[in-house]
Design a binder for these strands. Structure first.
Lengths: 221, 221
DNA sequence: ACCTGAACACCGTTCAAGT
DNA sequence: ACCTGAACACCGTTCAAGT
């Protein structure tokens, strides 16, 4: 409080919001390994101890960053879609978000109960609107959420092992090489789909899985 | 090589197998956070640097430990089951294994391509036997694998946040409390299933998800 | 009240020195 | 060849000292 009233405040003062924002920038540009309290302090032009006045520890910071990104992704889903399309929109929205921020995928199965709950609620509401029997709603929402989580983790790992500006074609060719290196007698299925792997689209495959679960839910009513 | 021939060797000599075995013991009894090269060296009665003669780094060690557990789990699936039952057996086998070794769930989406590939092959083979159209086999195997992965991660996190000898009823009551603490107007679905959460069974819910995906696959042929 | 930055108690990993 | 264990370059977190 100054003689100018409530408004005046250093616009660059430290706050939880600014810290989370800076953390997201570091995570996006340099990856999970680059987020240290020292790097964060340097970017915010402060001491590393100062951060602890606004954030209790690193896990909480990562949860807050994840929550911020997931909230933004869920908010982008149009409200007037048919239930099944809304589920697809939520799923694809999360897929694209994790594609953009791979660290979110890795983070999503740790502490951030709140981010997960937001996803679960968004999907559950549409499942009810879809007319899935009451007794199957919980299991159905759980199945979809877990599937999305599994893909998220997988994608995060792919992005991590690929590095930032990697050539996707070269990457896939390398995975195909790894797959076909295994004994064909012990891995017949892997060999038979290795060719499809080369020119499949992750996003399409993800959506095919969503549709598979939606089709399964459809058989319940 | 001694004058006794090839056979003689100290049975307690360090080896990759003994290191992986000791790592699994530490992970099982004291959790992921307890696995350090210093703790491992102490348990093996050696110096921390000695481990690097048999294992290149910690990530490789964790991948080898995960691979060892997953291989054991997949080997336990009976060979004479009908395809759909075999898929259920693989899935439940992995579920129970991760229940017993929660760190495997957390580890499964990182490096161990080989563990993942083993699961993918096991499931893919049965999908083909199931008569799923050729064009849908890759996506179906991918969906099931990703779903299993998602549940694995979720379960690992639950086990971690529960601690070892925790009371499950008390834990669930606490989750219900967290769920219902949110605004009912913003989280109607979460509130409506909170009661079911209290006495649901994780294993049954997991299997219900598998059956949902199997039912979806059934609509394709 | 908020910030500073040295200090503490750890890590994974390396490497000269031993056997 | 294999092992030892001190040393190095980091971490997250704490805390006396400043403003």
């Amino acid at each position: 409080m100054s003689r100018w009233g409530v408004a005046e405040r250093r616009t660059d003062a430290l706050s939880k919001e600014r810290i989370v924002e800076a953390a997201i920038e570091i995570l996006d540009t340099d990856g999970e390994g680059a987020l240290t309290f020292r790097a964060l302090a340097a970017r915010l032009a402060t001491g590393s101890g100062a951060i602890y006045h606004h954030v209790p520890d690193k896990n909480t910071l990562l949860a807050a960053a994840t929550d911020s990104i997931v909230t933004r992704a869920m908010a982008g889903v149009a409200g007037d879609l048919a239930p099944a399309d809304a589920i697809r929109a939520i799923a694809v929205g999360l897929f694209d978000t994790i594609d953009e921020h791979p660290w979110v995928g890795a983070q999503l199965h740790r502490h951030p109960r709140s981010a997960l709950l937001r996803i679960f609620e968004g999907i559950g509401g549409r499942i009810r609107a879809l007319g899935v029997p009451e007794a199957a709603q919980f299991n159905s929402a759980s199945a979809l959420t877990n599937y999305i989580l599994g893909v998220a983790a997988q994608n995060a790992e792919n992005a991590r092992s690929q590095g930032a500006g990697a050539d996707r074609t070269a990457f896939l060719a390398d995975v195909v090489r790894q797959w076909t290196r295994n004994d064909p007698a012990r891995y017949p299925f892997v060999h038979s789909v290795a060719a499809q792997l080369r020119d499949h689209d992750d996003r399409e495959q993800f959506l095919a899985g969503i549709d598979l679960i939606l089709a399964g839910m459809d058989t319940l009513s």
